[in-house]
Design a protein around this nucleic acid. Structure first.
Lengths: 217, 217
DNA sequence: TCCAAATGTAAGCATTGATTACACGGAGTG
DNA sequence: CACTCCGTGTAATCAATGCTTACATTTGGA
């Protein structure tokens, strides 16, 4: 290295990265770099070394924070789940006064807003081959959201808002529809929307509304 | 090796694998071993070496047939697409006399039958991180099926079989529903069906029928 | 019969995930 | 201020893997 071992840059926090020995917040920097790397190079091109290089640390440094490559990507997924949860909570708070079916709709729109606003995060969280879904909090938190949606559907039925039918089926169908739409979006399966005239998010919400209408009494 | 270099096993095709120099049908054997390896060890544990070992050839042998690891998995996906196409053609042939909406239903059921009957193949084909979707025939064939479904939906509308609404939206919604349901199945997202009392395939077809009914006139 | 193409083997290189021993620096304590 | 502890990053290294190259063997056809 060209740098002397006495940087004396202890107090210089501002300005360009003075490259002090301790990064300061390496963990978060690694997560952000990983997301950026997926955006530019693709998920399969993500290596721990490349992420370390992007941040400017040695190849072994990331392993202080993430024991395995899978753990790194799982952490990205966990952060993604945080954002999803925030988005959902925000949507639910805004629809606090509405009936169960409209709250269900708000939750769905919150999901779409998150997925279309953070496509890389959705990609990571939905690609089981690269993360540890079971051995993390992801499964539990995922199930929690699923339970919330199922409860809403039951409440909606109890309130007479639903067409005759099994509310569990409705809940599963709604989830599958949302998951499939988001996945089709990041996989480039949308025929011609992603060009310009139409906003994919608006279009997807339209389809979701169509679903809501089809199960409403 | 303990084997002499003059096996003289040219004509002995029957019986247990006499391990002749040329495998005979290595390409297909590699594909099958890959599928089996994914079933037992998981998609992320698939390495070219492990597949070669399972078949009983040297680590470099697979590269005569598949230039890269991605090519191997892409070939699995291509074979999966073959089977899907067969299943769809069979379903369409059986529903030849029906109207457009019922043919659409038959196609959907063909898809579910394939996905639930070949979960590993569906997993590979739907995991973009490990295959070359664009640089293969997968994209084209996928688009072809999509076009068939879209045409059916248009035909159904022209025949007055559809509720008022955009048939393109209906087609996209149906695809997303199917894709999401299949993906939820292989990801273990089905609440309690996969246990015993209920047949997941039957349940999924029920949900799909519910969708069909919701868009029918 | 003989040659050429196809196919598998053997050996090795480059990259990458992961481990280990060591170096550095910051925070608390006296 | 001096000292120590411990969290954090570095350097060196190993093992596994993707991939390449040179060679060996078999097969099929002229």
């Amino acid at each position: 290295m060209s740098r002397p071992s006495t940087p004396a840059a202890k107090a210089s926090v501002g300005g360009p990265p003075g490259r002090r020995y301790h990064h300061g917040n390496l963990r978060q920097a690694l997560l952000e770099a990983t997301v950026q790397l997926i955006e530019t190079q693709g998920l399969d091109q993500v290596s721990v070394r490349a992420v370390a290089k992007m941040v400017g640390v040695s190849p072994g440094a990331p392993f202080r924070h993430f024991p395995t490559r899978t753990a790194l990507l799982t952490a990205v997924a966990e952060q993604a789940m945080d954002r999803l949860r925030e988005e959902i909570d925000k949507a639910l708070a805004a629809a606090a006064g509405e009936n169960a079916l409209m709250r269900y709709r708000a939750l769905g729109i919150g999901f779409f807003t998150w997925a279309f606003g953070n496509p890389v995060h959705f990609q990571v969280i939905s690609t089981r081959a690269v993360i540890d879904f079971e051995g993390s909090s992801l499964r539990a938190r995922n199930d929690e959201i699923r339970a919330v949606m199922a409860d809403m559907m039951r409440d909606a039925q109890a309130a007479g808002l639903l067409r005759r039918g099994d509310p569990v089926r409705y809940a599963v169908a709604g989830r599958a529809l949302g998951y499939g739409l988001a996945r089709m979006y990041i996989d480039g399966q949308f025929p011609s929307w992603d060009v310009e005239d139409l906003n994919p998010l608006q279009e997807v919400i339209g389809i979701f509304d169509q679903f809501i209408a089809s199960i409403a009494a």
